[in-house]
């Protein structure tokens, strides 16, 4: 790691101030991606602003058909939350399978969505459920939030304070992990509810998570695995690597979609 200055502000206002005053400062939530990046010297921030001291960023509330999760809420907290398990079991289950136990104990939803790793799980849930991202300045619809691989609609210094999810009627997530890293090589989130019928794909897209319009249209007509028959995924916008070619990823999107649908019931 290069040298940097560590800050641990106690409020969103203080964090914003620290980040605004220094374009090379980086916010850190769980640090599960940032710290490995720093260790490999792939980033050289002047300062790291640790958001873990900000109490208002933590916690889960369920009301009025919405699950709202504070940006600094860990994956473990989401996975084990009785309220999330009841309201959106697919979301709790997704959180329970992000990384490993140690990652889940530190990694947060805010960090995950702000980073938009193309192999992360949460972006699939946000798009699949039609979530809303809350920042210190505004709210952003998930559909407008993810703008490309490792790229989001966040402005420099803007902090994800929470994500709210409308409670769906049915939802499930199926993941095919990369055999080595165990990140999502293909993850498909299907949902039916207040945001309509949605199919979101993570892990596979060259530009990050995306919605699968052809599958959405088919499922909107008929919510059944049979509706997915014959639907293929164009390969030109997919990732290919040593573990999975574009062709294989395209195929797995179909398989995971069917499995998610079966799980969603």
């Amino acid at each position: 790691m290069y040298e940097f200055t560590y800050h641990r502000p106690g409020s969103i206002a203080d964090a914003v101030k620290l980040l605004a005053g220094d374009p090379d400062a980086r916010p850190m939530s769980g640090g599960m991606t940032l710290i490995p990046t720093l260790k490999q010297r792939l980033a050289r921030p002047t300062s790291v602003v640790d958001l873990s001291g900000i109490a208002e960023l933590k916690g889960i509330t369920v009301s009025g058909g919405t699950v709202k999760i504070g940006g600094m809420t860990t994956h473990a907290a989401v996975a084990t939350s009785a309220e999330v398990q009841k309201a959106i079991p697919a979301l709790a289950k997704l959180a329970a399978h992000i990384g490993d136990n140690q990652v889940r104990n530190r990694g947060t939803i805010g960090g995950s969505v702000a980073n938009h790793d193309p192999a992360a799980d949460y972006p699939g849930a946000l798009l699949g459920l039609g979530a809303t991202v809350h920042t210190d300045k505004r709210t952003i619809a998930a559909d407008d939030f993810f703008t490309g691989m490792f790229s989001t609609a966040l402005n420099p210094g803007e902090i994800v304070t929470a994500v709210s999810f409308p409670v769906p009627e049915k939802a499930a997530y199926a993941k095919f992990p990369n055999p080595a890293s165990r990140y999502a090589m293909v993850g498909v989130f299907v949902a039916k509810g207040p945001s309509g019928v949605r199919v979101a794909v993570t892990g596979a897209g060259a530009d990050g998570a995306f919605r699968h319009k052809a599958m959405e249209e088919a499922l909107a007509t008929k919510w059944s695995a049979s509706a997915l028959e014959g639907i293929t995924t164009p390969q030109d916008t997919l990732n290919g690597d040593i573990h999975a070619s574009k062709e294989y990823r395209a195929h797995l999107i179909g398989v995971m979609a069917r499995r998610a649908l079966a799980a969603a019931g």
Partner: peptide
């Protein structure tokens, strides 16, 4: 790369990878 887990310790009762925590 935070994969192997040889560094796991407990922090406030949770297992964490001490190579991935300042």
């Amino acid at each position: 790369t935070s994969q192997c887990g040889a560094c796991v310790v407990h922090v406030n009762g949770d297992s964490i990878k001490s190579c991935t925590l300042l």
